[in-house]
Structures are given as structure tokens and as C-alpha cells.
Design a protein around this nucleic acid. Structure first.
Lengths: 335, 335
DNA sequence: GCCCTCCTTGCAAACGTATGCATAAAGTTA
DNA sequence: TAACTTTATGCATACGTTTGCAAGGAGGGC
């Protein structure tokens, strides 16, 4: 057992050379009759080409490394599933690397990745130090950042139009009569978080309003919840909270409701991402949609054309998504 | 670019043979001074061993194939994260294969898996036809079923003690005064679903009660929701519903609340899994905990000892978890 | 000082495939 | 039919490692 059949054994059975077998299975030219003999013998022996051996010689492993940090945020499993399905359809597969919250362990992870000779890397919500970036570039391995830009890194990135989305969300709050608007930001170490905060600030300034508060929620449920409690405890309270992502927004809603407040009567809440859970009645969260499908498509297109040798200059792709009005914020008048 | 440094280049720089370099990096014996020279040269060149080449010769790829179907059920991302972290710590990595809901495409997926020369396979909530099982056995690749048993398959499996857990949940409902208890089952094509149903029926029979209804929810949100609506629409309604997993239970709660009923005043709801979301205040779901940690540990222990050549007879491991009492069911009297 | 053992090291052969090169066969054109 | 082009095939090498084998050197016991 454990001895898989090789192309040589197939060759012998089919009465041809090992090269012939290889050519049949790698799509190179071969006469119809040889192909037939080879396929018959292969089926008989249950032969399938060894991907690793093939990878050694071609230099293409057909493995894509995926680095992912926040698997508890529903956005990422969904993205993972779509990435995986799309890649599988193209004959690639995902080698997954989960990275602990601490950023320092990422170095080891990237090195591990390179050891596997991956054809490309998708970094979801993860920042790469310039040293690591160099490592990948030097190894000739394309990297695409998913849902997290990194200016000056020279890497391609695919995100939603975070500034614009946050602006839309904030404007919607302003237009529905809110004036004491707080923002629980995403982690300020991430461009995505900073951009959403930027959009918030722009919209506020544009309306001549001062933010009620801006506090870093670290993309963390507990942090966000305790910030929400703090915000709702003072003598003057916000009448709306724009939260840096849905994952935190759920915690905020939970906390606020537990304090006895009503959403949106006492305070409106808007999130960002539109994860499936946002549409579930228990939360019914107004939020800015990140179009996962199109983000995934753009990511793969960028990555795969890099892999296929087309010189792709680092591009920063931003995809716009609509504001999805739901029950956690006051409805727009007249609509 | 793209030209990674090889052990041969390191050898030349260090003034030793290529074998020496290999031995240093594969942990074989080498004198301290050689090791030092090699490491220095390696660091200077940025050398790291090529895992694929190593895999070719050793026959060990240090890749574990993971087949997973329901990534929208929060239980699986969580399990995935823990599996990945634990495996990373042991020098393994996960090649992920998402499988569409249709069961027929699994064949192709398993073949793809074997092509990558994976050292082992974890099938999460997926059934393998006997043909596929044979394929893996013949290839000498150990398979462990995670959260889904498959009697007679000859494969090891790790699940929670589903019959017992379901019995506990049902008993809790009975003890708190419910008598018209319905069960929205997991997919009847899965042993996990059948076992939980079994536990439900046992407990009911034991108490001399007749199930109010037993309907297959297919592990699907929409299906579960429409069943819930149907159950709550008749003139006699259940006073409790035991749902086959949390994922469906959330849909059931959403639907019931939207109909204007109150939980647990009008109807108690109990789920199964204890995913993180179950403890969030919006649902506060009473549920049977599946101890993910211990299930992951057991899975890896079984899998890795198989991989390391220890003859492991197929084992069926069931891990017990407690009932977690929360607000979606009436509290036990006196507690 | 001799023999034996142990540790270290280099040589060379694998692992299973893809592919350049040369040759043979087949087809095309005049 | 001859010359030339295209297509098919086998041989041999290469990919980057691990590892059995043999040889060399160091050290210990007598």
C-alpha cells in the first residue's frame, strides 16, 4: 500500500515510453492511438499524475497560499469559500495559513509559505512588513492583499471603496436627522480602518458636524462592546453610531440593547461589510455592502495574470458597494 | 528572480557537500562546526529547503487535505481555525477543498486531493462513498471524519456524543414542563443528524411522550425557517422545539419572533453545537456544546498517529459536551 | 601500538515527472 | 520519385532534495 502507480508503470503496460504518458496527461501532442492506449492503461492501474513531481519540474505548484487572521468575522469564511471554489475551478488549490492576532508571527508564516513553492499569495486582512514583501518579490511570487491596502508596499490590493462607503453611511445618518454621531473605528493599524474613519470624518466635516467620538474598536467584539457601553453611559449620548465593521456592530447592538436602549429609536447603528448575519432578523443591520463576489474576481484576475507571467504593475483596486438600508437605522424620510 | 537558492549553492559557499547541507536542515547528525558553516552560508543566501522536493523523496508532504462543506455554519470556520493552528504548530499545513452542496462532486475532490500526495485527509461533515474510501485506503492515506460518523466505512471518526447530547437537551425540555416538543432534525442523510434525532426520540419515549413533530431541516436556514413557521401556524402549536444544530436554530428563532411569538414564553428553543453566536445576547441560545477543542485534539491525534505509521484501527471517538442553559428555554425550576 | 567502535562526510542513486533533442514516420509539394 | 515539412516518439537529463553506502578520522580499551 502507499505505492502509487507511476507514469512508468503505465508506460510499460501500454507499451509506450514514459514520455508518451507524460505528454498525454500534460496535454502535449500525442497521436490519438497512443493517447487511447495510455488512457486505458492508466485507468486500469488507477494512475493519476503526481502533482508534486510535476511542480518540481515545471516550477508551478498550482498552490495558492492564503493568509487569514480573523476567521471569526463571518466575512472571511465567506470570502474563503468563494476564493476556494473559484480557484478549484481553475485547477488551483488553497494552502491555508491562519495567523494569530499578533503581527510578529507573520514572518514565520510567510517563510513557511514560500517553502511550499506556492504560485501566489493572498493576504486577507494582514499587513506584510517590507522585509517580507521583499522576500516574496525576490522569490518572484505575486502577492495580492485582500480587503486591506498597504500604501507604498508595491503590492496589489483589492478592497471595497472604503472612504466612499463610509461617507455614504455617515451621510445617510446625517440626512435622517442625526447629529451626535460616534464612530467606533476599525483597527487604526489597518488602512481599511483608517479609510473608513476618513470617510466618516469627511462626511461629518462636509455637513459642518463634529464627531461625537471616534474610538478604535480593534476589530474586536469585546472592545467594541465596552466602547458602546461607555458611549451610552454619559449624560449626553450619541444618537447614532457608525461602526467599522459588522462584526463589531453586532456586539455594539447586543450591548446597547442589554442596557435597555432601543435601536434605532434611541440610537441608530450602521455597520460595514454586509455579512450574511447582518440580514438576519435578530440584527437587521443597516450596513455598507462589500461585494465579495467582485472582490474575489478582481483578486484572482490580478493574481492569476501575474502568475501567468504577464507583467502586472501593482494595482490598487477599489470596488464600490451600496448602502443596504435595514432596521438598525432610522429610515430615510419619504422612502 | 524566481530562482530560489538551492542546497547546492549553500554547499559551495560553505565549502561542504550538498549532503551536509541536507543533513543540517533535516536534523540528521552533523558536526557542530559543519552545522555552523552551513547555517551561516544559508542565512547569507536566504536559503530554505524546498518542501516539495523533500516531499518527493520522503513521501511525506506535510500537507493535510481538508474537505469542508458548510462554511456558512459558524462551527466550521472555528474548527478550521483550530485545526490549522494546531497543525501549523506541528509543521503541517492544510490544503483546503470546499465541496459544493451536491454530493456527487466529492469524487473529483478526493482525486484532486490524492494528486497532491497529502499525508492525511480530514473530512468535515462530508460522506465518502465506499469507492472513495477504497481509493484512500489503497493509497495508504489515513482519513478521519470530523463531526460526521459513517458506520461500516472502516474510517475513524470524531464526533460529539450526539445521542446523549440530544437526550440531555430533550430531557431538559421535559423537566421544565414542556410536553408538545417538536424536532427539526439535521439532514437525515447524515449520521450526526440521525443520532440527534435518535436521542430526541429516546428521551421522549422514556418520558412517555409523543413527539409533536419530526421534520428534516437539511441543515439549511431557509428550510428550517419555513418548518418553524409551519409548526407555529397550526391551531395546536409546540411548546418547545429542539433543533438539529445552532445554525438552523437561529433561523428558527428569527422566524418565530417575526411571527410575534416570544421565546421562551411561548415556545422554548434548544440548538446543538454552541457556536460563538449562540452566546451572543441577540440569540442567547440554550444548546448542547460540542467541545471543539477536544474534538480537534482527538482528530489530530488519530490522524497523526496513523500518519506516523502506527497501526491504528478505525476508531469511533465520541466526546461528550454539556448542555448550556441560556435564555431561549425556560429555566430549570429551583436553579 | 593495534583493533574495534563511533561519528562525520562525500558520492551517487533515487523520488516521479516534464521537456529538449534527435530520429523515424508520415504527409505535402512539385 | 525526390526533397521538404510536419508530426509523433523515445532517450536522456533535470528539478532539489534525502539517504544507503563506503571511506576517513578520532578516540578508547587492552
Amino acid at each position: 500500500m502507499g505505492a502509487r502507480t507511476t507514469s512508468l508503470q503505465v508506460a510499460k503496460l501500454a507499451g509506450v515510453s514514459q514520455s508518451a504518458v507524460s505528454r498525454v496527461f500534460s496535454g502535449a501532442s500525442a497521436s490519438p492511438e497512443t493517447a487511447k492506449k495510455v488512457r486505458k492503461a492508466a485507468k486500469q492501474l488507477g494512475y493519476r499524475p503526481n502533482v508534486l513531481a510535476r511542480a518540481m519540474i515545471t516550477g508551478k505548484s498550482r498552490i495558492i497560499g492564503l493568509i487569514v487572521a480573523y476567521l471569526d468575522n463571518q466575512f472571511y469564511p465567506e470570502a474563503l469559500e468563494r476564493l476556494s471554489n473559484a480557484l478549484q475551478a481553475k485547477g488551483y488549490h488553497i494552502l491555508i495559513f491562519t495567523v494569530p492576532n499578533t503581527t510578529d508571527r507573520i514572518a514565520g508564516v510567510v517563510e513557511d509559505l514560500l517553502d511550499y513553492q506556492v504560485d501566489g499569495i493572498i493576504a486577507a486582512s494582514v499587513s506584510l512588513s517590507s522585509g517580507l514583501t521583499d522576500l516574496c518579490v525576490k522569490a518572484g511570487i505575486p502577492v495580492v492583499l485582500f480587503n486591506r491596502g498597504q500604501p507604498g508596499s508595491g503590492l496589489s490590493s483589492v478592497t471595497s471603496a472604503n472612504i466612499k462607503g463610509a461617507t455614504m453611511a455617515t451621510q445617510a445618518l446625517i440626512e435622517t436627522g442625526h447629529s451626535r454621531i460616534a464612530h467606533i473605528a476599525g483597527w487604526e493599524g489597518s488602512l481599511t480602518g483608517r479609510d473608513r474613519q476618513q470617510g466618516f470624518e469627511d462626511a461629518m466635516a462636509c455637513a459642518g458636524l463634529t464627531p461625537f467620538a471616534i474610538i478604535d474598536g480593534m476589530y474586536n467584539r469585546d472592545t467594541a462592546a465596552s466602547i458602546a457601553r461607555q458611549l451610552m453611559t454619559g449624560d449626553t449620548r450619541p444618537d447614532a453610531i457608525f461602526v467599522g465593521n459588522d462584526h463589531m456592530a453586532f456586539a455594539v447592538m447586543d450591548e446597547i440593547r442589554q442596557m435597555g436602549f432601543s435601536i434605532p429609536a434611541d440610537v441608530s447603528v450602521i455597520g460595514y461589510d454586509d455579512v450574511p448575519l447582518a440580514s438576519w432578523p435578530a440584527y437587521d443591520l443597516t450596513t455598507v455592502r462589500q461585494p465579495v463576489n467582485r472582490m474575489v474576481e478582481a483578486t484572482l484576475e490580478t493574481l492569476l495574470s501575474s502568475i501567468n507571467g504577464q507583467e502586472v504593475y501593482p494595482q490598487t483596486i477599489e470596488i464600490e458597494g451600496p448602502l443596504i438600508q435595514r432596521g438598525s437605522s432610522k429610515p430615510i424620510k419619504g422612502s
